[in-house]
Amino acid sequence: MTLTLLVLAYLAAANPFRVAAATTEPPANKVLAVFAATFVAAALLAALIASPILDLVEVTGSSARIAAGIAVLAVALKDAIARPPSAEPGLTGAAHGAIPLAFPIMFSPAVALLAIAASENRGIGVALVGLIPALVVAVLLLAVAPLARARLYTSTVGLAGVGVAGLVALDGVYAI
C-alpha cells in the first residue's frame, strides 16, 4: 500500500468533515489537544498490536488490507448517506475531545483496521505518518467551527471514500 493511498484511505476512514459537522463552535485548545492525543493514541495502539492481533485471528497482512478496504467502504457509505453525528451527548471539559470527538466520531473501525493493515504492511512509523493529514485537517476544521455545508462535505468525502476503499481492497487482492 503506497503512502498516498494510505493517506487517502485515512481521510476517508476518519473523515475530518464528520467531526467538523458535529461541532458548533471552536473547541478550547485543551479540547483540541485531548482530541488529537486520544486519536493518535488509539491509532498507535492499533498499529502496535497489529502483528499479534493478526496472528490471533489468523489473517495475513495482505488479507488485512482487504478487510481494511471493506471497513473503509462501510464507513464511507455511511458518511455518504447518513446524517453526521452530533456533539452531544458527550463528556464535558477537555474530555469532550476524547468522547465523543475522537471516539466514536473520528476513530472509526475503518481507522483501526487501516492502522493495523498499514502497520503490518509498512511498519508502525508509516501507519502513523499516514494519519497526520487527516488529523491536521480535522484540527483545522474544528478551529474554524462551525463549518458551513459540513454535511455536504462529509457526504462528498464519503462518496470519494467508496472509490478509495476499492483501491485499498484491491491492493490486498493483488498482494502476495
Binding site: A71, A74, P89, S108
Partner: peptide, 27 residues
C-alpha cells in the same frame, strides 16, 4: 444518553467488523 451513544457506537463497530469477517476469514 452518553452510555446509549457509546453502546450504539460499539454496535456499529461490531457490524463493520462482522462485515470484514465475511470478506476475510481465518487462514
Amino acid at each position: 444518553p452518553l452510555t446509549v451513544r457509546l453502546l450504539r457506537a460499539l454496535a456499529g463497530w461490531v457490524l463493520v467488523l462482522g462485515l470484514t469477517a465475511v470478506a476475510v476469514h481465518p487462514e
